[in-house]
């Protein structure tokens, strides 16, 4: 036919075998080098407390604050939460809290408030902290930001398979829909944009009532959320997402009775590792610390 083959196809995936995920394969021919330190494990803290929700599934802020403090302290091997936060930010930092306002499952407002309080306790000026989602490109604090805290609930997602920490930065571009191709495999590129790169100090994946299956135009069903009552905290967004993805997958398999792969497969998590060097998605390179409630932990 004379046409040089440049497309990555399903057959490339088949040739590579099942050991290599499609997400990592998608990155093979591209020039981006990976920057993650391949010898170092990424620490991920999973903290759970079943009392974080009351009988009406409302969040109990004091319990949530305790969970956050335990997780951040363990993550940084700090002696107490206060010293942990002072290692994350400096008083002259300008901090954007990248939250998520999706109406069916937003970042819990008490968590935004707690993060803000912890940042201010660590010395950051109140006027230099702002939580935002849709308006981050126009928010003056985000425009001047020197640091970001990334916080969002995990959920299944129509195009990317999962709504993840990596995906949460999609509002840092003016045309998010341009990242929908290939199950949003290129999302990791956003983290290399000049107004984002290197600023993220902490990633918090909210697993309090995650969504493990979506349906309909709004891709939401209350019947497919469950009270997992957890937070996943890490400096490595890819490792945190990969850990959350394992929990969602396990829940799907248990709920539907047998293998029920996340559809579409969340390739962007692997691609964020192999293509964009944002962290590690490989289980063997993740140091998982479990804290708190262990019942039905799914890991």
């Amino acid at each position: 036919m004379g046409t040089r083959k440049t497309a990555i196809t399903r057959r490339d995936f088949l040739r590579a075998g099942t050991c290599v995920t499609l997400g990592s394969l998608v990155g093979l021919p591209l020039a981006e080098s990976t920057h993650a330190d391949r010898t170092k494990k990424s620490r991920v803290v999973l903290v759970r407390d079943k009392h974080v929700l009351d009988g009406k599934e409302q969040i109990h802020p004091i319990t949530l604050g305790r969970m956050l403090d335990r997780a951040v302290t363990a993550l940084l091997d700090a002696s107490d939460p206060s010293s942990a936060w002072t290692r994350l930010v400096k008083p002259d930092d300008i901090v954007g809290i990248k939250t998520n306002v999706w109406p069916y499952l937003p970042t819990p407002e008490p968590l935004n408030t707690l993060i803000r309080e912890r940042l201010i306790e660590a010395g950051v000026k109140g006027g230099n902290v702002s939580a935002d989602d849709r308006e981050v490109l126009r928010n003056p604090v985000f425009q001047r930001s020197t640091a970001l805290v990334n916080v969002r609930p995990m959920r299944t997602h129509h195009w990317s398979g999962l709504g993840t920490l990596i995906k949460n930065y999609i509002m840092f571009v003016s045309h998010p829909s341009r990242y929908h191709d290939n199950a949003c495999g290129g999302l990791g590129a956003i983290w290399h944009l000049p107004h984002v790169k290197g600023k993220t100090r902490l990633n918090i994946l909210v697993m309090i009532t995650p969504l493990f299956h979506g349906m309909g135009p709004h891709h939401f069903s209350r019947a497919h959320t469950w009270p997992y009552c957890g937070l996943i905290v890490s400096e490595d967004p890819v490792a945190a997402d990969a850990t959350g993805a394992r929990i969602i997958q396990a829940k799907r398999d248990a709920f539907f009775g047998g293998e029920n792969p996340i559809n579409p497969p969340p390739r962007h998590i692997d691609a964020a590792d192999t293509r964009f060097g944002l962290g590690t998605s490989r289980l063997e390179r993740i140091e998982l610390i479990r804290l708190g409630w262990t019942e039905d932990i799914l890991l």
């Binding site: 440049t6 497309a7 990555i8 196809t9 399903r10 995936f13 499609l22 998608v26 195009w159 929908h180 191709d181 290939n182 199950a183 495999g185 579409p264």
Partner: peptide, 15 residues
């Protein structure tokens, strides 16, 4: 092609 790939991943390009 985005929808084809959603139901049956074929290629990253519109082949």
């Amino acid at each position: 092609p985005l929808l084809l790939n959603y139901h049956y991943y074929l290629s990253d390009e519109n082949i």
